[in-house]
Design a protein around this nucleic acid. Structure first.
Length: 295
DNA sequence: GGCTTTGTTTTATA
DNA sequence: GTATAAAACAAAGC
């Protein structure tokens, strides 16, 4: 499930190979991918546009053009962007050479293709079709409803432990797992990394934020950054469908301590607990009730 | 064919 | 009115 590390991995990939690329055209086979059914508007703006660079805000990929517009891509559960050479056929899109990452089975889930002047394509692939694409004037980006209400970036230098604590304490009566997933509190954390950071911090996911001892917030903050940096280091988490822009899986999921490890032994040294799975705030939480303290 | 999956939005409740 | 919880929604794999 693309969270901050996966989104950033994709952004880094775009910056590594697509800066200066010119979009010739865009086509699709699923109009609902375009937020507010905006395909016609997106097409009008991106044709002839030059990609300057990409960036990230929360879980949104922002692809900036030299024509003062920015493409906003959200991968939701199973989406990803890939770069290669593809063509449209009656039943969808197929790679046109062996270099394209569509020896990858996910090629059959390509739904949007941006054709580039250099012969390559930037494609959006999404088995569940939950992903969303939209376009906005770059200068209006921060006022977009998609962006405006997002909380601070956990890896930004300007985000201090003090701010982190202040943000979490906006929801003192809520379960900490739920608050960590709230994009208006802290942007970019999803179900996988929230489970992992709570385990590292020895905090039970159902702890009420207001009951967590003040001394634990620096630990929670440090571990939030650690799991996200580790996710980046491992090229993202490919538990589900995530792939980088070359169609390659990351290996972050090979390092999970608790996520999807139900009924396995708690990996903490000296802890004999068994990982449990429980629905918390309508999301699956994985944790060890022996070493993770409920406050 | 019902159940599961997550990110986000919307609706309901205390 | 406010804060929180629950439900809805997207679509497809098993």
């Amino acid at each position: 499930m693309p969270e901050l590390p996966e989104v950033q991995t994709t952004v880094n990939g775009i910056n590594g190979t697509l800066q200066g690329a010119v979009i010739v055209d865009v086509c699709h086979d699923w109009a609902k991918i375009f937020r507010d059914s905006s395909y016609a508007r997106v097409r009008k703006i991106v044709r002839g546009a030059t990609i300057t660079h990409a960036s990230r805000r929360g879980k949104h990929i922002l692809i900036h053009f030299s024509n003062a517009h920015t493409l906003i891509v959200h991968m939701k559960m199973t989406g990803h962007l890939m770069v290669g050479t593809y063509k449209k056929i009656k039943t969808g899109f197929v790679p046109t050479d062996s270099q394209s990452p569509l020896a990858d089975p996910f090629n059959r889930f390509i739904h949007v293709v941006f054709t580039l002047q250099d012969g390559r394509s930037l494609v959006f692939c999404d088995a569940r079709k939950f992903g969303k694409i939209s376009i906005e004037l770059t200068e209006k980006l921060s006022h977009s409803p998609l962006i405006a209400h997002l909380g601070p970036e956990p890896l930004d230098a300007s985000t201090t432990v003090t701010l982190f604590k202040t943000q979490l304490l906006k929801k003192p009566k809520s379960k900490i797992k739920t608050v960590l997933l709230d994009q208006t509190i802290i942007a970019g954390i999803g179900n996988i990394y929230s489970d992992e950071l709570l385990w590292l911090s020895k905090v039970h996911p159902e702890s009420r934020v207001g009951n967590v001892p003040p001394t634990l917030f620096p630990i929670l903050f440090k571990n939030t950054q650690k799991v996200l940096y580790d996710g980046l280091k491992f090229g993202g988490d490919s538990t589900s469908d995530y792939r980088n822009i070359y169609g390659e899986a990351g290996v972050s999921h090979k390092h999970h301590k608790v996520y999807q490890r139900r009924n396995k032994e708690c990996p903490r040294r000296g802890c004999a607990g068994i990982i449990e799975r429980k629905i918390v705030g309508a999301r699956s939480a994985h944790f060890c009730s022996v070493c993770q303290v409920q406050y």
